[in-house]
Design a binder for these strands. Structure first.
Lengths: 254, 254
DNA sequence: ACAATAGTGTCTTTCAGACACTATCCC
DNA sequence: GGGATAGTGTCTGAAAGACACTATTGT
């Protein structure tokens, strides 16, 4: 009932056997459509998994992660693991849940801390070439959820998906999957890749000319003030946009 | 780099000294205005704190909580602690963060798991009378944040506030502070108590007659089909509403 | 009559939704 | 010219924002 039992002493209680951090590393891969014309790529949401080499779950695919130590916070641990895995600095890394069901880890009492990270495809490409081993791979979300994964990692991935989908619609994390300057079609594609149900009919108009959304994106201009365009994906070139610093607050009541 | 080091064995690493759960228990207290007429009460957002009786932070006020055991999940632990503290079943209890900065607990390597709970005032009243000890008390949010609290509990409370405020505007947790049937003034008051900046000019109209909000609340009717009213807070009686099961999804893009 | 809450009327501006239409430009 | 993307025009109805106004009733 009180914070600590009066008889508390570290020796009297069993203590956890470890506090690992597991990371759901999301990336969006692009593949060109087999067409002669310029076109928007096919995008797919993928997750990085690692094949385990020993007990428990030897041979199974699992989320990357590792044990934290008393000299670092759990977040610092996750960041370290992520950098070791991807070689990327300054990625979006966000904590979303703990996993502590009794028996979830045959090695003992392990309380896992789950993060999700958003990484651009090219950031992973270099790393994966380095250790080209077949034991690190990207899987599409559907593939990953169909596999028999180690521990409760399937559940963790499902929960991570719920979080990334909500964040994609309520925050500006889409920018983590996009270059600094992007076209609105790219943005629309990224959102749809993460949230398949997403559909907005007059997307361009809503994003560009709705005052109540307070300009989450703004048109990029050339140094001479003319609009900066891109024709990477189309014959007709498209206006480039960038995210502003606005983080809109949403409300169901107004 | 891999999930677990090949040389891993539980004995080789230092393990955490405990995995406590701490709970920020929010309640809204009501006090009548000193007026002769019926009126809306003054509402205040308060937090339940406990005064510690021993090292560390003896005499300091702290969040209620306790150590988890390997036989229960962290959530189950928090639920158990909350029930011991408040005697309440079926309250809203939500996990929101972990706290693991090195040195945060002088007793050793303690990874704390923070929850927030939303409890109705009357649920706490009974319990607080039972152990009328001066070592369990409600403090207003402002008071609590002005005090020198144990551990990093001030930080935990600040983070909990951010979460409860966002949830208050983006989900229907307001119902946790309201009776099953309530007037729209009550709802408005509750929202404002948690989110002081909240202001919507045509609140009644927006909540009742905006289709895009898909009816998060609905008017309550008497058995004979006539509108069910309440005059608890006013001379003129007001329509009673209840929350529906709708949980609206919000988006910044549409 | 008045205090206190509970609404309604009305006007203007903005936004949403639909969808046909034009624009660009490389192949 | 056709294919692929990038927009615009235009109309309707719904919603937002402001704020003055009416309604109810215990004291």
């Amino acid at each position: 009932m009180t914070d600590q039992d009066p008889a508390y002493s570290p020796k009297h209680y069993r203590t956890p056997d470890g506090a690992p951090a597991d990371i759901v590393i999301f990336t969006i891969t692009s593949t060109e459509k087999p067409t002669t014309k310029k076109s928007l790529p096919l995008r797919r949401l993928e997750i990085l998994l690692i094949q385990r080499k020993k007990w428990p779950f030897e041979g199974h695919w699992a989320l990357p992660g590792g044990f934290s130590s008393p000299e670092e916070s759990i977040y610092a641990c996750a960041l370290r693991e992520l950098q070791e895995e991807t070689g990327v600095e300054s990625v979006h890394l966000e904590y979303f849940n703990e996993y502590s069901e009794p028996g979830r880890d045959p090695r003992g009492w392990m309380i896992s801390h789950a993060f999700y990270a958003l990484v651009k495809e090219d950031a992973l490409a270099a790393r994966r070439a380095a250790d080209d081993a077949a034991d690190v791979r990207l899987f599409s979300v559907e593939e990953a959820l169909d596999m028999k994964l180690a521990f409760d990692h399937r559940q963790i991935i499902q929960d991570a998906l719920i979080h990334i989908r909500r964040s994609m619609l309520t925050t500006t994390i889409a920018k983590e999957f996009l270059p600094a300057e992007f076209t609105l079609s790219e943005l629309y594609q990224v959102i749809q890749t993460v949230v398949p149900d997403f559909e907005e009919k007059n997307f361009i108009r809503k994003v560009t000319s709705t005052q109540s959304r307070k300009g989450i994106v703004e048109a990029v201009q050339e140094v001479d003030g003319s609009p900066k365009m891109s024709n990477r994906y189309s014959q007709r070139s498209a206006q480039l946009y960038r995210f502003t610093d606005e983080e809109p607050t949403l409300s169901i009541y107004g």
